[in-house]
Design a protein around this nucleic acid. Structure first.
Length: 425
RNA sequence: GCCGCCAUAGCUCAGUUAGGUAGAGCAUCCGGCUGUUAACCGGACGGUCGUCGGUUCAAAUCCGGCUGGCGGCGCCA
């Protein structure tokens, strides 16, 4: 078993070490061969001098191909000429598996890289993005555990829509039509009557034929739901959670590669909160034609989010722009809901609200929006048996990661992005 | 669903405006080089120009259909 990783060798200067990894680059220069070795922790240059190794090792280093797996022995030395300032002076170079010609080379196009995603995942950039994705989830779990949230595991196979308009993927369920879940929310609502504060991290599926850089057909959805919390309470949870996720990322050593500074990942709480009414005014002041009651399109959202440096809330949206299960405000026109928007056009990261806990009011909303109540019997039951003020929200992990890593396209936030046309590999 | 764009060597692309014998860089192969950093230098190899049809003496280039894809909007997290 491998025991030493490339990131460990900075503590082993002057020592003879053995490393296992993959060939990232190979350059031959007459009597010296340079191999850059890659593993999960980073890269290091190996120099193989003809006169310092046995002929087999030198021959191996000469013929080794990109992405071959290798075993290397040598002394760790500091050398400013090496890409990372550290280098292994090789004494043994063994090829474990000689790679066939690796299909990916510098300058490969986006489409081609997606076709060979199983190989493209070896890139340093994607490796780092996956590590940061893991960090934000770790940050979330730490926060949730510390604050006594219970993790639950709702079904992915469901019988009905959770939200009105969005399109569902249907599957054959023993001869009946079933759907892949697009949100765990309604199931989480059922769990708060026993566990009070619950969350789930599940894939959600949207069959929207969306071809934008912010959309996936399958994404990681972190959803929270809590009894005894109103719209203000849940906004506080939202910002604390996002701050905890960002704080975890702030320790990542290569953040500057993504154009981020450590300080930017320490959010200043409370985050700014603006009413929908104010948001409309800001957008109108930029010369865009929008009226009260309209939801923001992408152009409007971009103009608005460019006014901010950190994520911020927009709350109290008009009812016509949102969904039936939200709690109506006393003004009779808006919902007690809030979205968390990332700055600089990255857009909506969280959508949340207080939920309607009054049976009559909920039924009225469903009638107005033309929703078949019989399909939501169990959901309505929750309002018959000890109804309680409660709130919740959903966070798109890839959307947050996209903002944190300044990604141009959300597909880079996934191992295997699922988009309209992309099902393989 | 709507709007716009693209398809030429293994990869990235030029050539299309104005029709006239298919180009470059990288990769691959061969040779050279003991400090390279996407190494460099020399040579070789590499193509039914997505597909079907039309116009023309002549089509990668002009016109039409089809297929595949990209970007954006709507919708959303």
């Amino acid at each position: 078993m491998k025991t030493l990783y490339i990131s460990d060798i900075e503590n082993r200067i002057g020592e003879e070490v053995e490393l296992f990894g993959w060939v990232y680059r190979q350059r031959e220069h007459g009597g010296v061969v340079f191999v850059v070795l890659r593993d999960s922790t980073g890269i290091v240059q190996i120099s193989i001098h003809k006169n310092n190794v046995n002929p087999d090792s030198f021959n191996n280093a000469q013929k080794v191909t990109i992405e071959s797996s290798v075993r290397v022995k040598g002394k760790v030395i500091e050398d400013s000429r090496a890409p990372t300032g550290l280098e292994i002076r090789c004494s043994e170079f063994e090829i474990l598996s000689l790679s066939e010609k690796f299909p990916i080379q510098e300058g490969a196009g986006k489409e081609f890289l997606l076709d060979v995603r199983h190989l493209a995942l070896r890139s340093i950039r994607l490796t780092e993005i996956m590590k940061i994705k893991e960090l934000i989830i770790q940050g979330a779990r730490k926060y949730l555990q510390k604050n006594d949230w219970h993790e639950v595991f709702p079904p992915i196979i469901t019988s009905a829509a959770c939200e009105g308009g969005t399109t569902l993927f249907s599957i054959d369920y023993y001869g009946r039509e079933a759907y892949l879940s697009q949100s765990a929310q309604l199931y989480l609502e059922t769990a708060i009557y026993s566990l009070e504060k619950v969350y789930s991290l599940t894939p959600s599926f949207r069959a929207e034929k969306s071809k934008t850089r912010r959309h996936l057909s399958e994404y990681q959805h972190l959803e929270l739901e809590a009894a005894w919390m109103d719209a203000d309470d849940i906004m506080k949870v939202e910002e604390e959670l996002v701050a905890a996720m960002c704080r975890e990322v702030s320790e990542y050593k290569n953040l500057e590669k993504f154009g981020r500074k450590k300080e930017e990942m320490i959010l200043n709480l409370p985050l700014e909160r603006i009413k929908y009414d104010e948001a409309i005014q800001i957008i109108q002041s930029k010369g865009i034609d929008i009226e009260w009651g309209d939801d923001f399109g992408y152009e409007e959202e971009k103009v608005l989010t460019n006014e901010f440096e950190e994520p911020f809330f927009v709350y109290n949206y008009p009812m016509e722009a949102k969904v039936f299960y939200m709690k109506q405000n006393p003004d009779g026109k808006t919902y007690a809901c809030a979205d968390l928007l990332a700055p600089k056009g990255f857009g909506e990261i969280i959508g949340g609200s207080q939920r309607e806990d009054d049976l009559k009011a909920l039924e009225r909303r469903m009638e107005i929006e033309g929703i078949d109540k019989s399909r939501y019997k169990w959901y309505l039951d929750l309002r018959r048996y000890g109804s309680v003020v409660h709130s919740g929200f959903g966070l798109g992990i890839e959307r947050l990661l996209m903002w944190i890593c300044n990604l141009e396209h959300i597909r880079d936030a996934c191992l295997y992005p699922r988009t309209i046309t992309r099902l393989e590999p």
